[in-house]
């Protein structure tokens, strides 16, 4: 038996909240991405030769999408669960006939949906700036969804773990953004000196961006299978942490 009404309302009201703050939720990531296009794609990109046969503008599209998706997934999901904890309204969710898994589906589902929408908007926007082709749409979509879900899961974990606003911002700023920038959003890994190429292989985002980029224009740093395996591994780790948190009632129940 699953409390579908509960999952529905959590999802619905999380989406509604995004709609109420539409500028913050959707417009701002899109605007910042457009800025990246103007600066890197058009201004600087016009001076850069093609990367493995792909124009620089088109080359950075997958990386830019990932940059937005990762930060948005993490911040949406972490804020979504942290805010009711902070205001105390979480009491109602805890006293409802609803399991932790259902809470998770509601909050993470909504956060992932929001990121997905942002991703699609960015993709459409990118189409106005560069000549886009998506070589493997199914792969592209799978990576898109998997990324949104797994990083929303990560955000959910952060939202449970954080006990102040500073911690809530800490991980996205100190971990996610650097990992994405160093993960090959704007370059291929083999442009780096050998030492840094090796270091990069420890960055999980490299696999994400590589796989995602491959689905667009078949340019990749690592094999697509390895990319997929790494994304799945990452999701599995997040799920495991969430499950452990659930078992101990971590930060939700005294």
């Amino acid at each position: 038996m699953i409390n579908t009404h509960a999952v529905k309302v959590i999802y619905k009201y999380e989406m509604l909240r995004a709609w109420d703050t539409i500028m913050q939720s959707f417009a701002s990531p899109v605007i910042s991405t457009v800025l990246y296009f103007v600066v890197f794609g058009s201004a600087i990109g016009s001076r850069i030769e093609t990367v493995e046969g792909v124009s620089y503008g088109a080359f950075i599209v997958p990386g830019l999408m990932m940059l937005a998706l990762l930060t948005q997934s993490v911040s949406n999901a972490s804020f979504g669960i942290y805010f009711p904890r902070f205001t105390g309204t979480i009491y109602e969710v805890l006293s409802a006939p609803i399991s932790f898994v259902e809470i998770l589906i509601g909050y993470v589902g909504a956060a992932a949906t929001k990121s997905l929408i942002i991703g699609v908007i960015i993709l459409i926007t990118a189409g106005f700036f560069v000549d886009l082709k998506v070589a493997h749409p199914i792969w592209m979509l799978s990576f898109l969804i998997l990324t949104c879900v797994s990083f929303s899961l990560l955000g959910f974990i952060i939202g449970l773990w954080a006990d102040n606003f500073e911690k809530l911002q800490l991980i996205p700023m100190l971990v996610i953004t650097p990992l994405v920038f160093l993960g090959g959003s704007f370059y291929t890994i083999d442009m780096l000196p050998p030492v840094w190429q090796t270091v990069s292989l420890f960055n999980p985002v490299v696999y994400l961006i590589s796989g995602f980029r491959w689905s667009f224009n078949e340019v990749s740093d690592v094999s697509i299978e390895l990319s997929l395996a790494m994304v799945l591994l990452f999701s599995a780790i997040c799920l495991l942490i969430v499950w452990a948190m659930f078992k101990t009632g971590y930060r939700l129940k005294q």
Partner: peptide
């Protein structure tokens, strides 16, 4: 409406 739904 949220509360009602939450309680199934």
């Amino acid at each position: 409406c949220f509360s009602r739904g939450l309680f199934g």
